[in-house]
Design a protein around this nucleic acid. Structure first.
Lengths: 336, 336
DNA sequence: GTGAAAGCGCTAACAC
DNA sequence: GTGTTAGCGCTTTCAC
């Protein structure tokens, strides 16, 4: 039962629309009545019902964000980036955690669409391309970050060149003299996982190094996967001299396995990965890593949505490819 | 223009209300027409407009969450906990990041209220008590986590006993023989910061140890604060033998300062803190820390809101105090 | 078992 | 400069 437009109108014996006008700053209103209205708004503590506004406006002035893992600092930064743009434009952000579950992801997309979001920023975990094409017809802008949809359709995209970054990261290991390289990557229906693998393979081929099937590990983007895959390798006779992980959690798991075996990183096995953002500053060994401009990815994605909202008939799709940084650290510098 | 109720009604030459009935499963509808309706809903790809529903329902079926820092894994876990309960109850979650800024926090509270959220989970950074009392009259449940509002009013609260936890953590250092203890805590208008300090002081007093004013550092809950405060101490003649930090970021910053000085943790200076959740498993030294049941805090907070939604006239406030765990690790075990 | 109609709180023509 | 009114898309009485 909060106070609403009609209450303050009644209170002043004027019409509801005049009040609406001063609230929205639209149309001309007599200066004195404006003052009076503003005053009683304060007094009565009126706040507009955003749901009613959204219904009228046909937009909730909200950006929806779907990420696979809220605990991952990369996504946390992306979200902060989106939020910055959103709040600058008086929009809010609904954050959803798909938990790397395609089903959950689809449900959230549906829900956000039903909530009439202005736009959607999504790091898909391999959702059905046909579904995305169908959503596209809703006219609500989808901006893909991180993982791209497996489709020929045009979509807005903000990402890095994962093939190239994978190549560069592998090249760094090759330059250190490594010939026995293993890779731990994520689900192959996630483009990041597939492309980073591709870059890795390409680099090895270009440098005349064999890519061993047995040293291509595929798991979820989680510590447990990295741990488990590494453990299997550690039980074999021949060990790789360097590990390339497609994200940080995979590598943390792998390193745990390596260390439990009494081996040292990097002296026994070197290690590199994507997205090792050390929030603590105390991770040992410090990880050589590809660092994506996460905050910028989020803010650009937010910008695209804002731009499309302002210019509805803008039928254009942007593919923004950002430059990541290769940070070289202990974990790839063999002491020998 | 997406398909809506009237489209599928028109398509079948029946009334809008019948369609609404089958969608909501309310009232009796002829079995055949029901089937038919369900079928065309599929065909035409109808999805209800949640905003319209929310307006009618006067609730957005959404839980709002405001946290000071999305990058903090403690809050990330809390959010996951809230989200779990929300999705079990077909609600969604709006996440807002106040960035430890009271102004931003207030704006977000206002916004969420306007968005007609079902309830609000908030880790306040010291918002105005009168404001909270005013919000309370809105009838929308506020559940406080982590930091409590500085007011006598009753509110729902899910937290730990920070005084006791602070006491226990300090006691651990005392038991290790430390007599020269320093504390780095957060803004004193955040109850966690104040209460952890209180517990620390109480413990020292109980054990006949002087609490030195000069070794009480107050900053933001950030790495930079910890770094800066520790650096100042390091420039003095006398050094503490142990550092107690009110959260993990503060301690990471302090340790950085200590290590840059060429000193060792824990051999030169022992260190403990709250909330050191090591997501990587590679933080060295491993931190002795009070670990809160973050996921549970979130899910209980969500539960309270769901309960209050179901039972509107439930005029009762719950104060849930959970037990944290004290995890003893390297950082407090002096080698001598 | 079904339909007509009111209304959720707001905005924006359109009249005056 | 101000008021009247028609919706936004849905749910829900109330008739029939």
């Amino acid at each position: 039962m909060s106070v609403q437009l009609k209450d303050i109108a009644k209170h002043l014996n004027i019409s509801i629309s005049t009040v609406s006008r001063v609230i929205n700053g639209t149309g001309r209103v007599n200066k004195d009545t404006r003052e009076l209205i503003l005053k009683t708004i304060k007094e009565l503590g009126y706040h507009p019902n955003e749901v009613a506004r959204s219904l009228k406006r046909k937009s909730a002035n909200t950006i929806g964000v779907i990420v696979p893992d809220l605990s991952n600092s990369f996504y946390a930064s992306v979200i902060k980036g989106v939020e910055k743009i959103a709040s600058e434009n008086e929009h809010s952000v609904i954050v959803c955690n798909s938990d790397e579950d395609i089903q959950k992801e689809e449900e959230y997309v549906q829900l956000l669409l039903q909530k009439q979001v202005t736009g959607l920023v999504i790091a898909t975990v391999g959702g059905n391309p046909q579904l995305f094409e169908q959503y596209k017809r809703s006219g609500i802008p989808f901006v893909f970050i991180d993982n791209l949809p497996n489709t020929q359709e045009n979509f807005d995209v903000v990402t890095i060149d994962n093939v190239k970054a994978g190549y560069d990261l592998a090249k760094h290991l090759v330059d250190q003299g490594h010939k026995k390289l293993a890779i731990i990557t994520g689900p192959q229906n996630q483009s990041t996982a597939a492309e980073r693998l591709l870059g890795f393979q390409k680099c090895l081929e270009d440098n005349g190094i064999t890519v061993h099937e047995k040293w291509i590990g595929v798991g979820q983007f989680r510590r447990e996967s990295g741990y488990q895959i590494m453990n299997e390798w550690l039980q074999q006779d021949e060990l790789p001299t360097a590990i390339f992980a497609a994200n940080d959690f995979l590598l943390y798991g792998a390193i745990k396995a390596i260390q439990e075996r009494g081996l040292n990183v990097p002296n026994d096995i070197a290690a590199v990965c994507f997205d090792a953002n050390d929030e603590t500053g105390l991770v040992k060994p410090q990880i050589t890593s590809i660092i994506q401009p996460a905050h910028m990815i989020g803010s650009i994605a937010g910008d695209i949505i804002m731009r499309k909202e302002k210019n509805k008939n803008l039928k254009m799709f942007e593919k923004i490819v950002l430059e990541p940084k290769l940070i070289i650290n202990e974990s790839s510098q063999t002491g020998r």
